[in-house]
Amino acid sequence: MIDVIDLKKNYGNLEVLKGITTTINKGEKIVIIGPSGSGKSTFLRCLNCMEDPTSGAVIFDGVNIADMKVDINVHRRRMGMVFQQFNLFNNKTVIENIMLAPVSVGIQELRRAKIKNFFTRARNVFTPNKKVLIPVNTSKAKIKAEAKENALRLLKRIGLEDKANVYPSTLSGGQKQRIAIIRALAMNPKVMLFDEPTSALDPEMVGEVLDLIRQLADEGMTMVIVTHEMGFAKEVATRVLFMDEGRILEENTPAEIFSNPQNPRTKEFLSKVL
């Protein structure tokens, strides 16, 4: 699903990623571990081009999204991302947070289809071989209603439907992060990227967020998780990547990597954190 080929990222003279090649298959749950400053988060952010890679390719569904010429927004809609700091839109209520992207993308696509149809119609008047119009079987109101229904369904799933109309500033960290997760889910992504989703949470709220991620994993969502929660990594991952100094030093199943690490750096790191 995602092929990463010799991915490099520099900040000025600082080489953060020094050539990463890996493949993420459908249904895999990949957990990236490693010391801070090892480039884990940068790697994750390169997967949906939040950071533009300096060189190399990120091939998502057959398209190299690291290429500056592709419309990255279209591809990002298929990749959900969850941040350490939640990043809910502060000026929007919870339900608006969830609905914003589906509604504005839906309306944008509707508008584009209508404009295209207008030109096709104009062209069809003058030429004998008629072109087919793009079927438009939706409307602004319908898009909004569908997005709202979906948002409420997602809120119900995490048991926060009573918070639909409050602003994020009144929520706890755990609630914010769960809403951030379903905000990403509202776009029906093919893969979810988690950037240390529990690092900014109080210990007692870590559980509720991990439970939700675990549920998604069980449903077969493809995911890439950067985390320091080793227990969670062991339990959820199908593959663990150990990164240090901008390289993947070791990748293996969690059972292998946690009980029988091969690389000396992995051994050293795990002996410190476990």
Binding site: M50, N73, M81, Q85, F89, A184, M187
Partner: peptide, 23 residues
């Protein structure tokens, strides 16, 4: 405004302009 707001908007697939004007 926290740069995370722009990042979150871009991450759900909104364009720079839309995120700027709406968020």
């Amino acid at each position: 405004v926290d740069p995370g707001q722009m990042e979150a908007g871009r991450a759900v697939g909104l364009s720079y302009g839309v995120t700027m004007m709406k968020i």
